[in-house]
């Protein structure tokens, strides 16, 4: 399909000029990354769907109002919108992102592969779980950068674009996140090894 090779910037231009199919292509191309990003923070399918929908309503209004001027950076721009909506969501509900054990969602479903039961694997899983708990102790701004960098494999450039801070600030937050993690580990004399 020709759609696969059309750059985002051209699809955005086509959409602004009235080609509705271009939006469908953009959504199809990026839905996993955007929805996955939202879900990684929210951990609730329904709320993630709501935020995904609100994100694209903003995108549509901006594009149709001819207020978009970031050609070639469509995905970081959309991710930034969804990031802001996620922040709004937590501000509204006044709670920090947290992974809770529920009937539909088990923390182990994202931490381990159930088919592997060897001892070494169990230890690695335990270390990962402990590390996650430690990461939860970090200040929000540092945790955000660390999770995006280490768990979502984003570059510092992408992180800075999504969070709206400079690359140096993002690097600084990563550095402090690691220093604080070491401090917590030392303080509680936790052994992370296998």
């Amino acid at each position: 399909m020709a759609d696969l090779h059309t750059p985002d910037a051209l699809l955005v231009k086509n959409y602004v000029e009235g080609n509705e199919a271009a939006l469908a292509t953009l959504i199809r191309r990026h839905e996993s990354k955007i929805y996955g990003f939202i879900y990684s923070k929210i951990a609730d399918r329904d709320i993630s769907n709501d935020i995904f929908q609100d994100t694209f309503i903003k995108v549509i209004k901006t594009l149709k109002g001819n207020s978009y001027n970031e050609e070639g950076k469509f995905l970081p721009w959309v991710m930034r919108i969804s990031h802001n909506l996620i922040v709004d969501h937590f501000r509204k509900t006044k709670k920090m992102p947290m992974y809770r054990e529920t009937e539909e969602f088990s923390i182990f479903s994202i931490m381990s592969d159930d088919s592997l039961t060897i001892e070494g694997k169990m230890i690695v899983d335990q270390v990962e779980l402990d590390l996650k708990k430690l990461v939860e102790e970090l200040p929000e701004d540092q945790k955000e950068v660390l999770v995006m960098r280490m768990y979502q494999d984003m570059s510092f450039k992408e992180i800075s674009e999504i969070t709206g801070v400079s690359i140096n600030t993002a690097l600084g937050r990563m550095r402090y996140a690691l220093m604080n993690l070491r401090k917590i580990i030392d303080k509680h004399q936790i052994i992370l090894t296998n």
Binding site: I57, I110, Y151
Partner: peptide
């Protein structure tokens, strides 16, 4: 390296109804 890239799974997608509503 203990961090798994599992938080943002590639398989996660919004509901079809949501995409249809947006379009």
């Amino acid at each position: 390296i203990y961090s798994k890239k599992a938080l943002a799974s590639k398989d996660l997608k919004p509901n079809k109804e949501v995409v249809s509503f947006i379009l």
